[in-house]
């Protein structure tokens, strides 16, 4: 699996609503180097998910451009694999069939694709659950299945939108360890969209902080914690300082978001 470099240049998106035009994202530019792990963090309503959909090619008619290895990408692209916030496994397929789905779509023969899926099944530690249906798995296992399915697509860039948002904190930390292990093994360029500061600091090389609506990049925080990391890093002083530093920026934006939401309710 080869890594790719991602560049987002002056991306903006406006939505026309009955209440008027809403600017969700405005003039966002950043890049992710090959094999780098970058997180984008921002308060609810800052346009993180809009940015995720634009980069993944699920939204069109936006300003700016998205490039992979210097080439502009338009629409869903083989170089970019997406892991979604919501539970997204196909309930009518077993774990291995879910993982083999993108290979089936690509026209790979059944025997070959199931053999290949086994590799990704092992990678996410679900070998014993190959023939179980999603309804028989825990939330964490389902998200690992979804991640393995995306990795089986062999994208250059892994794009994740709050994949562990619905999970409890302990599971989230432990899955973070697994994500780091997979990232190390595959040397996968990864962009994580999240609202969880701990998760962003635990996993990333850099954290990009976004403003409340319209979503712009406010600050870039390099995470200079030593690698390889594990969830034990959350107990270190340096970790606490980085979390505090990001929260300082984020607090202002989250407060703005809260005021805007409450104001909207009072209107």
């Amino acid at each position: 699996m080869s890594a790719g470099a991602l560049a987002v240049e002056h991306v903006g998106k406006r939505f026309v609503t009955p209440q008027g035009t809403v600017t969700a994202v405005e003039d966002v530019s950043f890049s992710v180097k090959k094999g780098e792990f970058v997180s984008i963090i921002g308060p609810s309503g800052c346009g993180k998910s809009t940015l995720f959909a634009i980069i993944g090619g699920l939204l069109d008619q936006y300003e700016g451009r998205v490039l992979v290895d210097g080439h502009t990408v338009d629409g869903a692209h083989h170089d970019i694999g997406m892991v979604f916030q919501e539970e997204s496994t196909f309930p009518w397929r077993t774990t291995i069939e879910n993982i083999a789905f993108p290979l089936e779509v690509a026209g790979m023969p059944k025997k070959e694709r199931l053999e290949k899926a086994v590799h990704f099944l092992e990678l996410v530690g679900l070998t014993d659950f190959a023939h179980r249906y999603p309804s028989e798995l825990s939330g964490g296992m389902r998200q690992r299945t979804a991640m393995a399915r995306t990795l089986a697509f062999e994208p250059k860039i892994l794009l994740m939108d709050e994949p562990f948002a619905a999970l409890d904190e302990q599971t989230r930390l432990l899955l973070g360890d697994q994500v780091l292990r997979i990232w190390r093994e595959l040397n996968q360029t990864t962009l994580l969209i999240t609202h969880n500061i701990t998760e962003a600091v635990q996993l990333s090389d850099r954290v990009l902080v976004m403003t409340y609506r319209p979503g712009r990049l406010k600050r870039e925080v390099p995470i200079d914690l030593p690698r390889p990391r594990s969830s034990e890093v959350v107990g270190s002083v340096a970790f606490g300082q980085l979390v505090g530093q990001i929260w300082k920026d984020l607090r202002e934006e989250a407060s703005r978001g809260m005021k805007a939401t409450e104001g909207g309710r009072n209107d």
Partner: peptide, 13 residues
């Protein structure tokens, strides 16, 4: 569920 359709589209379906 829209997310299932989004998954399909992300795999270029």
């Amino acid at each position: 569920r829209p997310v299932l359709i989004a998954v399909g589209k992300s795999f270029k379906l």
